[in-house]
Design a protein around this nucleic acid. Sequence first.
DNA 1: TTGAAAGCGCTAACAG
DNA 2: CTGTTAGCGCTTTCAA
Lengths: 351, 351
Amino acid sequence: VPDVDPGSAAPLRRGRRQRLSSPTTIHDVARAAGVAASTVSRAFTNPQRVNARTREHVFAVAGRLGYRPNPLARALPSGRTTTIALLVPDITNPFFFDLIRGAERQASAAGYTVVLTDTEESPEVEAHNVDRLRRAVDGFVLASSRLSDSRIREIATDNVVALVNRRLDDVPSAVADNTDSTRQVVEHLASLGHRSITYLAGPRPSWSNTHRWNALRDAAKRHGIAAERLGPFHPSVHGGAAAADASIGQGATAVVAFNALVAIGALQRFAERGKRVPQDVSVVGYDDIFGADFSSPPLTTVAAPIQDVGRAAIDLLLGQLDRERGGPNYRRGVALASHLRIRQSTGPAPH
Amino acid sequence: VPDVDPGSAAPLRRGRRQRLSSPTTIHDVARAAGVAASTVSRAFTNPQRVNARTREHVFAVAGRLGYRPNPLARALPSGRTTTIALLVPDITNPFFFDLIRGAERQASAAGYTVVLTDTEESPEVEAHNVDRLRRAVDGFVLASSRLSDSRIREIATDNVVALVNRRLDDVPSAVADNTDSTRQVVEHLASLGHRSITYLAGPRPSWSNTHRWNALRDAAKRHGIAAERLGPFHPSVHGGAAAADASIGQGATAVVAFNALVAIGALQRFAERGKRVPQDVSVVGYDDIFGADFSSPPLTTVAAPIQDVGRAAIDLLLGQLDRERGGPNYRRGVALASHLRIRQSTGPAPH
DNA sequence: TTGAAAGCGCTAACAG
DNA sequence: CTGTTAGCGCTTTCAA
């Protein structure tokens, strides 16, 4: 690569981005190929509507010139950015890894880019991010949204939205259904002789939190077992420590934590406080995250096909996008079943 | 849920995005404020270059109309997207959480959006993602890139890039420096009576892998200790199982794993194979990830301020962007020191 | 300090 | 099947 053309003193570096050689445009290709710019455009966006020979010629020239369509310029007139925003409340929660990966893969497969933002458990940050990305994406996947129902409806009015782990009329959603798996949890604990279950609650705005608690309370009632609720606690290992202390104060023998982070935090705190798991207290957590299988002791969890949930959410979103363009594939929502995965943190009730 | 509004036959849904009321533009504001569109534009991008009174008036009108600048339209003429791409080789590796969060926070603080992509340990996917995002972002942060030096140089020629955990002349980078912490590892193991250390290698294209192995070999030599290398292994818990088996075959008494995922996988495999840690074999891993503190036994690790590394990488990138616009704050690179965090996976050499 | 005008690179009618 | 022509919403000279 020759360093600099000695003939040109100052030029070559005009424009605002000095070292970036100004990229090949549709016009460069058109000129070099001896066709109109619109033909080049069509060749790329609607190949079947241009003569096979000219099309191949255009592609050849474009390839030779290293032409790459500018996604921004493409998005402006069409309104379509082929970008999807994925909002999660806590990017450091391993629960979201698989969700993110599933969503990313499904989106990539469809030619979409996903921009990921961390809302840090704050409804305000979440709303602000939506606002900021509004015109830069084709739609939003709100995962475990902390926004109010009304705020979500509002957003869904003038944006394409799919929800994850949240149910709301008229807004498509992909959720992990914990109804049956929670029943399994209750029966598992009941069979071990537990007469009372303490739920360590997560964030109030979390739909999953309510869903899980309701399922637990109902199943417990059906089995004639007491169900208590403590919290809410921050959905992290730190929150788990607080939750453990609270449950000790309450004399719990079996706790079911809002999520595995809280459960793992509780496990650690129980150990510090001299409570043996599962001899003194049994611990169950939702979400079979990384680490749940090697905690001390390994954690009994409710496992959901979360990568599939991520995929489904993207499908729901793309379905709506297609519907807007007249496509038929639009679904109201999906619920994927989860199941109990028994490990060593649950055992017979004490006494 | 009412199925369909019976009152509206077909209308209400015109344009390509039916239910989206066409958003307020700069022209709407201009008209309503009785000024030229360019004045509205200036008011938002260069406030000090428009009369204070008109500026306030424009803002008032814009606020009343709910005007939001369209980032795409803004990016087209200016070439600036205020978006940064962050590429990581494995989004499910907890190591990257804090990196991502640090980068995200620093970027947001500067008004930038980050798009995150998972390259799944593949140089091809990585190169492809760069290519695809080329014109949609202002710059790239390549974290633990799996690309070759020459490919990275090539990319850095016509893109703004910052590297994480990779050193390369002329390309700014933020790295966790493991030189001193690796010396600490060697001295720690030596003081426990180990005479030989086995390194469980990570991906060949990983700079960290080479960096760590070199540091280990050098420190071992200085202490008159043997250093062996096994691998490469896939940088995951699965790779760790293979690594454990290999090290058992080799009779290792002290292993240092490329990363904590491999170390945790090895821990599990050692347990399955009846090897006690640390009585039979000591285990150390790089990266003090989520889970390292509650594995069985808790893992001795090399901990780095990885969130700060993420921040630094963004700073490096923004520094270059500013330099392109004439700003001075441009730095070649930063190296943040890491340190040994001793837990229970290391102990006296057997015999 | 402000307005008019010319694009940024691409898409999408509309003719031909 | 292909070319011409208008923009998409905004920025940015250039004059006034």
